[in-house]
Design a protein around this nucleic acid. Structure first.
Length: 567
RNA sequence: UGGGGAAUAGUGUAACGGCAGCACAACUGACUCUGGAUCAGUUAGUUCAGGUUCGAAUCCUGGUUCCCCAGCCA
């Protein structure tokens, strides 16, 4: 799987894969290809992570003997939780990737990292600093001005060794000291100005418990993790480009195995936010109903919404990999989704906003089972029997008493086809006291059973329907973008991204009518409701209580026509 | 005003000195028992100014614009 290079042609490599291919050619890594996906377990994975996952696991899968490690970068106990670890494991697996036995935790390397730190201290390349966080910032200088040396920079190696050991032993309070690399306080790259390697944090870690009260910083830890695991290509996002000199400095100073760090641009998508901070905010403020809210761009949200792993993988393939910031049109994601769902989803009939239709010349109490194709894109999917009856429901939108020009559907005096069933003609409109249409009276042509007229006459439209007697009730949740603007951060002065929340991103429809075959649907089962879109059964559903999520609509040219007519 | 990156149709990406191509979106049309799917077509691009070259998106010089960096976050 994963290398769906079904476009025949010689394949174009993105710049990361090109580097890997070149390295394989020169034998730089002895033919090894080892990548890693290193999430911090402080939130749920989102579609942006999927891009990184597909890149790293994809490269490993495409190269003989290649492998990709799943490694939790759990160096900050204050933000990390087991719940996130569990969700990440589930999401990566669901996306279709397999890390084999290569599941790792940075916290498992804490002992070795400490030994490496001692090594640097002994080499005179690291020191214990007593500056407060605020002082450290002041001493660091600015982007345009060099920093100043910490007064603790020239402590003796023995004193540093002693202090570091006592830091680890828990003798000092949080924030009172740090271990810093001794590099260059005048370096134009601010991250090289004696960066902090360890901070004191008397916090319980979700895996190592209370064993440690000093925790390594990202820059110190990450290269070591890569080195320990003998990663060949350490692929990360653009904001770490500034850190590469430091990544290299640490590994060189230690003289250990040294992977190559490569940076690529993170994914941005229209109408959505992608930072964990903002997603956390949506969850915490109740703007979304949890991490797996079907409107969230999280993997768990998309799964619940009805996305397929294949669609997400295809999306990650077509967006490519680059070094500049770009924002992908949400429509491209939906395109990949529809493409996959079209060929895999069984068709079924469901009426979201029911309009009762009585077929006046149809006999009462007959059993009439009609053959319906399960998936015209997949002959192997076969067919099913769907019951018909004298009273049926059709979609309210499929009838107009006074149809405008391009409306092809049912109207007084007009004949249409009921999908896989009969031609019906409307000759009676019943209204309530408010003048709303509540019922239609139609006649059917018994010779059109199955949907074809023996005399060859044509109808302009085919409608979906559900037999009233056999229909199942269902709740259907319709989703729209969580944000009204293409760029949610594009908000008025003084407001934040939540100002652009779409108040209509969720519509709950009750009293929907679906065909009886859906009684057996299981959570997350995907269907195409004919003419409407793709839907999946929500995990909130229970026996006798059907709840469907609309994953995405079908392309709807009538809706487009309507829109241009009203504009 | 320091350092590090980057600029190709509306959007996302190819072209690695030799005809600027693909996909999405938009718009036409054909076909259709899903106004779905499918098929055919149209619109539309090299950040700017110089230079090198028979030939430049690609190489060189300069400019413009955008992104990242001053956490004891990752």
């Amino acid at each position: 799987m994963a290398q769906d290079n079904n476009n025949g042609q010689e394949q174009r490599l993105d710049f990361v894969r090109q580097i890997v291919a070149d390295d394989n050619k020169t034998g730089k890594w002895g033919g090894r290809v080892v990548t890693r996906f290193p999430p911090e377990p402080n939130g749920y994975l989102h579609i942006g992570h999927a891009k990184s996952i597909c890149l790293n696991f994809g490269i490993a899968a495409e190269n003989p003997g290649g492998r990709c490690h799943l490694r939790f970068d759990d160096t900050n106990p204050e933000k990390e939780e087991q719940e996130y670890v569990d969700s990440i494991l589930q999401d990566v697996r669901w996306l279709g990737w397999d890390w084999g036995e290569h599941l790792y935790y940075a916290s498992d390397y804490f002992d070795r990292m400490y030994e490496y730190a001692v090594q640097l201290v002994k080499a005179g390349k690291a020191y214990v600093c007593d500056l407060t966080a605020e002082q450290t910032r002041e001493f660091r200088g600015t982007l345009t001005e060099p920093g100043r040396h910490s007064p603790y920079r020239n402590r003796s190696i023995d004193e540093n060794l002693d202090l570091l050991e006592r830091m680890r032993a828990g003798e000092f309070p949080d924030g009172s000291r740090t271990l810093r690399a001794k590099i260059d306080m005048a370096h134009p790259n601010v991250s090289m100005r004696d960066p902090v390697m360890y901070r004191i944090l008397h916090a319980s870690h979700h895996r190592s418990g209370d064993k440690w009260c000093i925790y390594p910083m990202y820059d110190w830890a990450h290269g070591l993790e890569d080195s320990i695991e003998r990663i060949t290509h350490s692929i990360c996002t653009l904001e770490f480009e500034n850190h590469r000199p430091l990544y290299d400095w640490f590994l060189d100073a230690l003289g250990v195995y040294h992977p190559r760090q490569i940076e690529f641009a993170r994914l941005n998508l229209t109408y959505t936010v992608m930072s964990k901070r903002k997603l956390l905010r949506l969850v915490k403020d109740g703007l979304a109903d949890g991490w797996d809210d079907p409107r969230m761009p999280t993997i768990s949200g998309m799964r619940r919404r009805g996305y397929s792993p294949a669609a997400i993988r295809e999306f990650c393939r077509v967006i490519g990999v680059n070094k500049f910031n770009s924002t992908v049109d949400f429509a491209l994601l939906e395109h990949c989704l529809r493409q996959d769902l079209n060929r895999t989803s069984p068709r079924v009939m469901a009426v979201l906003r029911p309009l009762k239709v009585v077929i006046t010349n149809y006999p009462e109490n007959v059993e009439d089972l009609l053959d319906c194709v399960n998936n015209p894109e997949d002959p192997a999917a076969g067919s099913r029997k769907v019951p018909f009856g004298r009273v049926i429901y059709i979609e309210r939108d499929d009838f107009m008493e006074e149809p405008p020009k391009k409306f092809f559907r049912l109207a007084p005096g007009r004949e249409v086809r009921l999908r896989y069933a009969y031609f019906i003609k409307c000759n009676g409109v019943i209204k309530n006291d408010q003048g709303e249409v509540v019922e239609l009276h139609c006649t059917f042509d018994p010779h059109t059973r199955g949907g074809d007229a023996p005399d060859g006459r044509k109808v302009a439209a085919t409608l979906h329907w559900v037999s009233a007697e056999h229909a199942l009730d269902a709740e259907v949740r319709l989703y729209d973008h969580l944000f009204t603007r293409e760029n949610p951060d594009d908000v008025p002065e003084g407001e934040d991204f939540t100002a652009g929340i779409n108040p209509d991103s969720l519509k709950v429809l009750t009293g929907c009518k679906v065909e009886p075959s859906l009684a057996d649907a299981k959570p997350l089962d995907r269907f195409q409701f004919e003419r409407l879109g793709y839907f999946c059964l929500d995990p909130d559903a229970a026996p006798g209580k059907l709840i469907f999520n609309r994953t995405v609509t079908l392309k709807d040219t009538w809706a487009k026509v309507q829109k241009t007519q009203t504009d």
